[in-house]
Computed example of a mutant assay.
Amino acid sequence: MTEAEFRALALGLPGVVEHAEQDHPDYRVGGKVFAQLGYPEASWATLWLPADAQEDIVAACPGAFRPSPGDAAGHTQVHLSEAPHPRVREALIAAWRDKAPRRIRDHFRD
Results as ranks from 00 to 15, higher is better:
Ala4Gly: 08
Glu5Arg: 12
Ala10Trp: 04
Leu11Gly: 09
Leu11Asn: 13
Leu13Ala: 09
Pro14Leu: 06
His19Thr: 06
His19Gln: 10
Glu21Gly: 07
Asp23Glu: 15
Asp23Leu: 14
Pro25Trp: 04
Pro25Tyr: 05
Pro25Glu: 07
Tyr27Cys: 08
Val29Met: 04
Val29His: 00
Gly30Pro: 04
Gly31Arg: 13
Gly31Lys: 09
Lys32Met: 14
Phe34Lys: 03
Gln36Gly: 02
Leu37Ile: 02
Gly38Arg: 06
Gly38Tyr: 04
Tyr39Ser: 10
Pro40Thr: 03
Ala42Val: 14
Trp44Ile: 02
Leu47Ile: 09
Leu49Lys: 03
Ala51Pro: 14
Gln54Asp: 03
Val58Ser: 03
Val58Asn: 04
Val58Arg: 05
Ala59Gly: 07
Ala60Cys: 12
Ala64Gln: 00
Ala64His: 02
Arg66His: 14
Pro67Ile: 03
Pro67Gln: 00
Ser68Pro: 01
Ser68Gly: 11
Pro69Trp: 02
Pro69Val: 10
Ala72His: 15
Ala73Thr: 11
Gly74Val: 07
His75Arg: 10
Thr76Leu: 00
Val78Ala: 02
Val78Tyr: 00
His79Phe: 08
Leu80Ile: 07
Ser81Tyr: 12
Glu82Gln: 13
Pro84Lys: 05
Pro84Tyr: 08
Pro84Ile: 08
Pro86Leu: 09
Val88His: 02
Val88Arg: 02
Val88Ile: 15
Glu90Phe: 06
Ala91Ser: 14
Leu92Cys: 07
Ala94Gly: 04
Ala95Trp: 01
Trp96Leu: 05
Arg97Phe: 12
Asp98Glu: 12
Asp98Ile: 06
Ala100Phe: 00
Pro101Trp: 06
Pro101Gln: 05
Arg102Ala: 06
Arg103Tyr: 13
Ile104Lys: 04
Ile104Phe: 05
His107Trp: 15
Phe108Arg: 09
Arg109Thr: 10
Asp110Cys: 11
Asp110Arg: 09
